[in-house]
């Protein structure tokens, strides 16, 4: 019986943490005034926010029902895909020029978003350069 009470409080605590982080992510999204800084708030705060909510879900179903591990998959997919969508949004921002112009790379070339299509051979060369 006491385990149930502990679990209930733990679930409530995780739900609260998750909700607070999600709220802060939204505040950041609205507050910042530059597209690149705006990108920071949802990409990072979102991960712990949703992570805590999913942890609450695992705990709840483990204690009061049969148990569920789907949430681990959701978390894994979220952690793998969040950087990729952030990367795509950053590329669009760079391409539109709505941010400060990024500095040049260290070697003699350009960023792949800004490069011209006929220099695509550089990318292929770099990818194929993996050691045997």
């Amino acid at each position: 019986m006491s385990l149930d009470i502990v679990a209930t409080y733990a679930v409530a605590a995780f739900l609260f943490i998750g909700a607070v982080f999600a709220l802060i992510g939204v505040i950041g999204l609205l507050k910042f005034n530059d597209p690149m800084t705006r990108l920071h708030a949802p990409t990072k705060v979102g991960t712990v926010g949703i992570g805590a909510l999913l942890l609450a879900s695992i705990l709840y179903f483990d204690t009061f029902h049969d148990g569920s591990i789907h949430e681990l998959l959701i978390m894994a997919f979220l952690f793998v895909t969040a950087p990729i969508s952030a990367n795509f949004i950053a590329k669009v921002i760079i391409h539109q020029g709505t941010c400060e112009t990024p500095p040049e790379p260290v070697t003699e070339c350009t960023w792949s978003t800004l490069g011209s299509p006929n220099r695509k051979s550089d990318v292929v060369e770099a990818v194929n350069h993996t050691p045997e």
Binding site: T43, K44, A82, N87, P102, P105, C109, W111, A126
Partner: peptide, 23 residues
């Protein structure tokens, strides 16, 4: 690049054409 996006105050934005620098 994925790690950088998920960790302290940084988002990885782009890779250079030759793959030797990360923005």
């Amino acid at each position: 690049a994925g790690t950088i996006t998920l960790t302290p105050g940084t988002v990885s934005a782009d890779l250079s054409n030759d793959g030797h620098s990360l923005l």
